Amino acid sequence: MTILVAVPRRSTVRSSTDARVALAEFLFDEVLTVMREVGLEPVVLDRCPDESTGFAAVVLPGGGDIDPDRYGGRHVPHLYDVNPEQDELDFAFASYAVMSGLPVLGICRGFQILNVLHGGTLVEHLEPTGVEHYDSAALATSVITARLSWHNVRVAEGTRLFQEFGHGDPVVASGHHQGIATLGSGLIASAHAPDGLIEAFEDPSGRVLGVQWHPELTAEGPTRPAPFLALARAVESTADRVG
């Protein structure tokens, strides 16, 4: 059975010289690749579907920063690629998934979209800690070869992610200069970075899952497919309950 998954199209111009934008576009394509590797068929759309379209799930990929006005935040100088059109599309997809009871996976920006949708807030720019969540040198340049950083996260036992990893301390690819300030209502933190920043969450139903890192960048091991496999299992669980 083909599992159709709705994915909102990126509206950023691919010719942008901002390294972060170029990297986000590359990672978007990688997300689609991993989805197909685990048996999910992505359908990229430029408008939000409705309940009659037959989608089994939604994936919200990475990208630029959310307009701070959406969560009562500040417009700080470090913001990049703030795009009201993209915000409208991504929030519409997120709302569609939650209201329809469809499993949804948010990655990096998508993770933050889901948190804000649930009433949570974001840190507009992370101050340095013992964990490098983003490449601060690359952030200050427009070099296309900007790279991500790598660090461990602690995944809580008993969560959907832990079931897929089989252990609780994976190394992940990180490229976010923002993070969760307050967790959205109804969400449960399921992974943290060593500095305490929330790196993943889910809801009690198991249908909402978000990861702050980029699993699609990992070439080998369980870190690459784990969140996508968790989404696929959520689709199966939802189908079993409906059936």
Score class of each variant (00 low, 15 high):
A92W: 01
V123P: 01
F111K: 05
R70F: 09
G39Y: 11
E85D: 14
P204L: 02
G158P: 05
V235Q: 00
V43H: 07
D69Q: 11
G221I: 09
P8F: 04
P215G: 03
R154P: 00
S205C: 10
E41W: 13
L79T: 04
L105I: 08
A156V: 08
E199K: 03
V98I: 15
S142I: 07
F28K: 03
G106W: 04
T218G: 01
F28R: 02
M35N: 09
V31G: 00
A232L: 14
H75M: 04
G72Y: 12
P227R: 01
P170F: 06
L229I: 15
P49I: 03
H192Q: 04
H78E: 13
G175Y: 04
V143C: 08
R36E: 14
I66N: 00
G63Q: 02
I107T: 02
R241D: 12
I3E: 10
D46M: 02
G64W: 00
P8C: 08
T182R: 15
G210N: 06
T129Q: 08
P227N: 04
A234I: 09
L27G: 00
G39R: 12
D87Y: 01
I113K: 00
L27P: 00
E88F: 04
G72H: 08
R36K: 15
L217T: 05
A230F: 04
G130E: 15
R147T: 13
P227W: 01
P170Y: 08
H151F: 09
T17D: 15
S52N: 11
S205D: 12
V208T: 10
G119Q: 08
W213R: 07
E37Q: 14
T17N: 14
P215R: 01
E220H: 12
V131N: 06
I188C: 07
Y134F: 15
G168A: 06
V82H: 02
T218E: 12
D90E: 15
A181R: 14
A22H: 12
D67F: 05
R10M: 06
S100R: 03
R207A: 00
G120L: 07
L27K: 01
L4C: 05
L105D: 00
V98S: 06
D65C: 06
A56Y: 02
V104A: 03
L23E: 07
G175S: 14
